[in-house]
Structure formats: C-alpha cells, structure tokens
Design a protein around this nucleic acid. Sequence first.
DNA 1: TAGCGTTTGCG
DNA 2: GCAAACGCT
Length: 680
Amino acid sequence: MSGGGCSIVWFRRDLRVEDNPALAAGVRAGAVVAVFIWAPEEEGHYNPGRVSRWWLKHSLAHLDSSLRSLGTSLITKRSADSVSSLLEIVKSTGATQLFFNHLYDPLSLVRDHRAKEALSGQGIAVRSFNADLLYEPWEVNDAQGHPFRTFADFWERCLSMPYDPEAPLLPPKRIISGDASRCPSDTLVFEDESEKGSNELLARAWSPGWSNADKALTTFINGPLIEYSTHCRKADSATTSFLSPHLHFGEVSVRKVFHLIRIKQVLWANEGNEAGQESVNLFLKSIGLREYSRYMSFNHPYSHERPLLGHLKFFPWVINQDYFKAWRQGRTGYPLVDAGMRELWASGWLHDRIRVVVSSFFVKVLQLPWRWGMKYFWDTLLDADLESDALGWQYITGTLPDGREFDHIDNPQFEGYKFDPYGEYVRRWLPELARLPTEWIHHPWDAPESVLQAAGIELGSNYPLPIVGIDAAKVRLQEALSDMWQQEAASRAAIENGSEEGLGESTQLTPIAFPQDIQMEENHEPLRNNLATTIRRYDDQMVPSMTSFLRVEGEESSLDLRNSAETSRAVVPRNVNVNLEPRRDTVNQGVRRTVRSNDTLAQFDFTVGLGYAEDSAAESSSSSRRERDGGVVPVWSPPTSSYSEQFVGDENGIGASSSYLHRHSESHQLMNWQRLSQTG
DNA sequence: TAGCGTTTGCG
DNA sequence: GCAAACGCT
C-alpha cells in the first residue's frame, strides 16, 4: 500500500491494547494515530447512562496512559457525527488508512458502513476486524448455511467449529506515533456536578481499565471459577466473574477469556474434577450467551425494540406509571424484587438471577411494556449492553425460539427461598425488613401481626403490601394472553383475506410511548424521604437519569456539551428506522406499534456478509489468519420499494418456539434478515 | 436394582 | 410444560 501516511486506529468498545487486531494492524502498517470519538447523540435513546459514562471516563484514561507508555496517546473528539469527525481527523493527520474492530448493534452496523463508504471514497484504505467474538456471526451456520435459531444449537456449533477461535495477540511493544499536532484532543466530559457524589461510590467497588480487567479475569479464573456452578444460584453475587462491564467496553477480549478457561478445563478434566468441569461449562455458557446476543442482533437488527416472535405485538400491555415507579423504587411489596431493585439503584449492579426475577416480575406480574424495563436497565446498569439486554428481555417475555414461555409466573416468594434461603440479601438491601425472621422474610404479608410488630414493620406504611397479588396476576395474564392470540388470529385472517388492514389500523394498535414525562429525580424523592433515616449510606445516590437524552435535546444538558461546537443532534442515516430520533421514538415506540406507522423502513443488506461467509468457508481450510484480517463491514443499503412487504414478515417473527408452534402452528413462519436480503 | 413418583431446572 | 436427575421402595 501507500508509504508515507499514517493510519488511524479508531477505538470504540475495544478499549485495550492487548489482543486488539485493529491496533495491531495499525502498528504493523507504521505510524498510528489512536482516536476515540464521543458522539452520544448518535445513539439516540441508547446513549450511555450515568454509570456507563463513569466507566467509560476511567477506561479511556487508562487506555491513554497505556498508549503513552507505548509511545503515542489517545486523541479524543467530541462529536455529533462520528463519520464527519473521522474525515476531519484524516484531513488533519494526512492518514491513509483506517482500522477498527467490529460492533454488531444496529446503530454501529449502519454507522460503520457509512464510515467505510465515506473514507473509501476519499481514497482511504479501511479495514475492520473481529475483536469482540469467538466467531463472526456469519461464520456460524447450520448445514444448509442458514443461521441457527436456538441458543443450544448455536452454542453447540460454536464449541465444535472446525477451527479454534484466534489465539489472543500480545500487546504491541512500541507504537510509532503519527503526527497529530494539527488534530488536538477535545476534553470529554462524562459526568456533571450532580453525578460526582454518586460516582465516587462506584470507584470503591470497581476498577475500569484493560489491565484491571485482566487482573479481574486472572483472579476469577484462579479463584471463584471452580465454585461457579455451586454458587451461581445465590443472589449474593460474591462468585460471579464481575467481568461483564469490562467485556462490554472491550477491556478484555473474550478470546483471551476463552483460552484461559479452556486451559483450566483441560486441567480439571485430567484431574477428574467434576465440580470444576461443570463450572467451566456453565461459565462458558454465559460467554456463549454474550456471543449469541451479538449473533441475534446481527441477524435480527431490530431485536432491541421489537419482539422476535411477532405475536407479542398484540399483547395488551398495562400502561401504569405507578407500577413502573414502584418497581424502580423497590416498593412492590415482594422482598426479593424490591431488594434487587434497590441494589440496582444504589450500585449499578445486579446478579444475573435477580435480573431474571425483577424483569419477569415486571413483564408478567405488572405486565408493563418490556421496553420500559429494558430502558431502565440500560440507564442504570454498569454493564448495560444493548445486545445482551435485548436478549435477556426477549428471553423473559418468551419471544425467543427457545426462551421461556410467557404464561408461567414465577412466584417471587418461592424464588426468594431458592436464591436467598436465609434472607441475607433481602436484609442487606431492605433494612426495614431486617428484623423479620427468615420464616417470613420473603412473604411478610403472611406473617402474624405480633411478628410484624416485633420486627417494627407496619405493612402499607413502612413496607408496602404486595402491589398485585400473584393469583390476580395469573388471572390477568391468562386474559391478556388469550386477548393477544385472538388479536393475532384476527390479524392473520385479515391478511389471508388479502385485506391490507390486517396489521394495520383495524387492529387499533396504539403505540406505547416511552414514559418521557418521567423524571427520575422527581420520582425518587418520596423514596428518599422514606429511606433517609434507614439507609443513610445510599442517600446521596441519584437514579441515573432516564431522560438525560431528552435534556440534551432541550434544557440544560446533564451531559456536558460545552466542549462541543455542534450541539445539534447527530445526523443519523435517514432511512434507518431504528428509532434513533428521540422525537420519533416517543411517539412511535410501542411494541404494539403498527407496521405501517413506520414510513420508511430500513434494510440491512447482508449480501456482503453472506458473500463473506462463503469466502471464509473457502479460506478456513487454507488459512484462518485471513479471516481475522477480514475487512468486512456488514453492508447497509437503502430500502427498496418492495421492501415493506418483506418487513411484515420479520414483524411476524423468526419462527415460533416449539411449544408456541405446537399450539399456534399456523401463525408463524420462518423469516429472517438473510432471507430478506436474498429475496430482495 | 428396576421401576416408580417427585423434584429441579430451564437461555 | 417438559426432561433429566434424584431418591424411595
């Protein structure tokens, strides 16, 4: 290639110097300018919440100091549009190449494709790499070359691929710095004054940064890993790996995790260590779920906002702000649920099991729209991750082909005794119940008056009565589900009659808006008043703002935009209807939204991805190295006119779970994005 | 110890 | 709601 010019290494969610293929390629090619572009408006609703921004701030500082010790530094840019920033950086540095690592969420797929087009158009050589997955989504297919639909099949295939995931790369020994003298960094501001107090607490529990991630990995593998299978069923999170936020920001590579785990696996297999082997398999499964979440996101780019099984769009969600508020504040009257929500609120963390408990409760007992819950998780979790969270919520609502079914309600009382048999978890997060004996800790409403009195509890006053009874919830859920199937059948019949009304207005589906009027600050006041005396140590906790993006729009920003010349919202690809624009979002975000309410529809054209799959199959026998150097960015292309019809197919889902299929076999057809691109 | 009911866990 | 694992006779 060209001599002279340096290369740009564009860091995103790969904030590490070890096993970073894009960085390695840059170093191999000569001088490097390392950049990070902060463009939160580009991400619409899903721009990072307070705790995520806190993490990012520290992770970037850590990366910068690593790069400095290697001979260069991290150029940071505040931007409203990543692609134009890249073009400016190219201009000011005279770079001739761009390297970056793949991401698989829909926004990134579109943006990265745009970046590739724009820079290639300027004569820049653009190459991209796999740094986030064991295998690229398009590498893992069934015998017919189609993507898998169930996790079990997908993961089985991953574990028996004919070639291993790439071995991790060592960090570069030295980096020759490109000339960035005409490309000064912007100071990025990730927290405002009001957030600092809350953020200080995070630093006591967490250490962002790639070398800390590496330490956390080593500690986990040499310690808690062996007990992972026995302890992972307890709410007390002492034996989880705590790697998820590190993994989200790419501070540690899954391939490294995988290789180190494999070493233990072989060791324990040789020793005949049963518990160890079981733990390894279980932990690998959680890595597999992370892979699967990207796989699903790639194959079904709308899964973060649309159920994969189409019938769910007919579910009559309960729109009740008071329920939503009670759930967020941990005041539902179910101790395990409430303890979980308080932990999340205070610490940005929640054990996986408890995530399942609180989200099932949200969807099945309260019957609130799942995307509200997902958005709240997004804003409050330290390891908020669009693909994983979308997968989790889809699992809970029974819209994954092999997920849970919707119609079974888990009783938080029994789950309480399963995950927290001695009530320690509840007592830690709900001090008002601390003196209640274990016998009653997960169902205080059954406790005799004398017991409650002795424990200082007055139900309905200092701890709520159950917000909804489980039996009532079961009845209501059955009604809602039969309503859903009725609507679905009616819609299908209408379609078969050739009446276009089927999915349209006649089913009077009303979009469910995000509760944009909800101000978390305002809402947490009552709770604060209640708890100020009892839980003093959390009383400076702010609920991360659910509406920060709205305030970016309008009034004073909670994100600091002072350094941004362009405070206007990012220009997003116009045709991409992933509801990037807050305004559109708030009107148009319902699960029950009609298809036709989307005027323009996006098409992800995966022909390049598919073509690549062929390439890689051909290459895999001869050379697996070439695959890593792939250079493929999944291609997004504007909608074709015939497209919307096909889109209806995807609305209807990717095919039913086996049991749903049984009961409602006529109602589902297999339709996925690969197919669409082939037929379209 | 085969055969049965019961419990557990589920991506 | 079902399959595997468990434990009882």
